[in-house]
Structure formats: structure tokens, C-alpha cells
């Protein structure tokens, strides 16, 4: 089919429009999912973008590493699929995407180019806390967790420092493309070892628990609860995949912790 025929054929033209809508909706859904949204929220965002841009009907399939969408309009339909990257948690980006989707659904942006531009802006401009603050806050969270678990005051600062260094190390390893599970194992070993050594040096009576608390930054709380809400919301496939991922992360946390305990065995 020549370009001229393609341009004049209304079916082909409509397919081209639907393809653009499907692609931008998938992109919004992918960003939402990579920012830590559960399946229900991802579906809402993707469907709102597609409908706001003119799709009459939207069907979505959510997988752990891919999204597929079928959009229909004017008697035609098209199906497209997109890969999904590493699932993290970025609340500000997630909120921005949800706001954008709401705006599009209410008719705030009606062409694909504008929406693509908005998505680019969100990816480029959403602020992030500085790395040192994230590391310190994570260490503080581990130390607070430790207190909730009964870690004594002597081990508070060692757990804080071990958690902070663990987070800094995790950031470095992941930004250099390390496998997530290997990175988790390494961080668990280092954080538990440092927390344990610090607690020992300060004569804490809860060295074991301090080692445990130092690794709590690695507990995947958001994916664990997302797994359950996904299953409850009618997405058992994605929920089960998340649950398996959570178990794998915890296996590597336990391995790193176990190695650290073995390395410190003579002192415990």
C-alpha cells in the first residue's frame, strides 16, 4: 500500500490515531507502575489517558514486566504492548502521573503530543531528595524499627549508621546496574555486619536484633502490600508475581544476614 493510499484510507488513519493513543497510555501506565502504583491505580491511569484522548473502549492486561492495551474507537481497535522496567517507589512521580491522568480524563489535554510532553516533563522535573538525606533517613528508620523490636539504646547509633551506609551502598550498586537480588544480598551482609560490630563495640545487649534491624531497609514493604491488594482487586497473576519477588528478596536478605552472623560468629 502506497503512502498516499495509506493517508487517504480512513481505516488506516484511524488505526494510526489509535496506535498513538495506545502508546502514550501505555507509557503513562508504565511510569505509574515503575513508581510503585498497584495494579488498580495503574489501570486507572492508563485507562484515563486512553479515554481522555478519545478511545471509546479500553482493555488492559497487567503483567509484572509488561503491559498490554487494546483501545477501540470508531469501529476499529488496536492492541499494543510495552515492557516495564524495575519496579521502585517514587511517590511524587506517582502522584504527578495520577494528577495528569485525572486532568486528561476531564478534557485538560486532548492531543497525544501534549501528553507526551507532560510525561517527559514529569520524568525530567519531578524532584528527588538528595542522596545523603535518603541514606540518613533510611538509617533513622532502621534505628526506629530497631527500637520497636526491642533493640537497646546502645545499639541505636550503630543501627542508624549501618542502615545509612547500607542504603548508600544499595544506591551505588543499583545505579551501576547490579542485579537487584545480588545487591540485596551484599547490602544485607554489609549492613548486618556493620550493625553487629558497632553494637558489639558499644557493649549492646541486643547484638543479634541490632544486626536484624540494620537490614530492615531491604524489607520490600510496598511490593508486599501491593501483592495482596492486587490479588484482592482482581489481579492474581500480577499479585502472585509480586509475592514471589518479595520472597526472593527476603531469601537474599536472610542469606546476607546469615553470612554476616557467620563472619561475626566468634564475637557473638
Amino acid at each position: 500500500m502506497s503512502d498516499e493510499t495509506e493517508a487517504s484510507d480512513p481505516v488506516v488513519r484511524r488505526h494510526r490515531d489509535l496506535e498513538r493513543i495506545a502508546n502514550v497510555a501505555l507509557r503513562a501506565g508504565r511510569i505509574s507502575m515503575e513508581s510503585g502504583a498497584n495494579a488498580s491505580a495503574t489501570r486507572s491511569v492508563t485507562a484515563a489517558v486512553a479515554r481522555g484522548l478519545g478511545a471509546e473502549d479500553v482493555a488492559l492486561r497487567l503483567g509484572y514486566a509488561s503491559l498490554a492495551i487494546t483501545v477501540a474507537g470508531g469501529g476499529n481497535s488496536i492492541t499494543r504492548m510495552s515492557g516495564v522496567g524495575r519496579l521502585g517507589v517514587d511517590q511524587r512521580r506517582d502522584t504527578e502521573i495520577r494528577r495528569l491522568a485525572e486532568r486528561i480524563e476531564k478534557g485538560g489535554a486532548t492531543d497525544v503530543q501534549t501528553v507526551q510532553g507532560e510525561l517527559d516533563r514529569i520524568l525530567r522535573e519531578t524532584p528527588r531528595h538528595p542522596e545523603w538525606l535518603v541514606a540518613f533517613a533510611t538509617g533513622l528508620a532502621c534505628a526506629a524499627f530497631g527500637r520497636l523490636l526491642g533493640v537497646d539504646w546502645a545499639a541505636f547509633v550503630p543501627v542508624l549508621l549501618a542502615g545509612a551506609l547500607g542504603q548508600a551502598l544499595r544506591h551505588r550498586l543499583l545505579s551501576r546496574g547490579a542485579n537487584l537480588f545480588v545487591a540485596v544480598g551484599i547490602v544485607a551482609f554489609v549492613a548486618a555486619g556493620l550493625g553487629g560490630l558497632g553494637a558489639l563495640a558499644l557493649r549492646s545487649a541486643s547484638v543479634g536484633m541490632a544486626m536484624m534491624a540494620s537490614t530492615l531497609l531491604l524489607v520490600p514493604g510496598v511490593p508486599a502490600t501491593n501483592a495482596q491488594t492486587d490479588i484482592m482487586d482482581g489481579f492474581p497473576t500480577l499479585g502472585s508475581a509480586r509475592a514471589v519477588w518479595v520472597v526472593m528478596v527476603m531469601v537474599f536478605v536472610a542469606t546476607g544476614f546469615w553470612l554476616a552472623r557467620a563472619a561475626l560468629g566468634g564475637f557473638l
Binding site: G36, V89, D90, Q91, R92, R93, T95, P127, R128, H129, L133, V134, A137, T138, G139, L140, A141, C142, A143, A144, F145, R147, L148, Q167, L217, G221, V222
Partner: peptide, 24 residues
């Protein structure tokens, strides 16, 4: 008070890790 305080600190710490803005 102890449990509430450290629950708040832990939630705040993880909030920073999850890139929450100040209000959130």
C-alpha cells in the same frame, strides 16, 4: 508514646526513601 514516636520516625524515614514531598 515510645511506640508511637518510633512508628512515626520509621514511617517518616521510609517516606523520604519513597520520595514523599514535605506535605505527604
Amino acid at each position: 508514646l515510645h511506640q508511637a514516636f518510633f512508628g512515626a520516625v520509621a514511617a517518616g524515614g521510609f517516606g523520604v526513601l519513597f520520595n514523599f514531598g514535605r506535605r505527604c
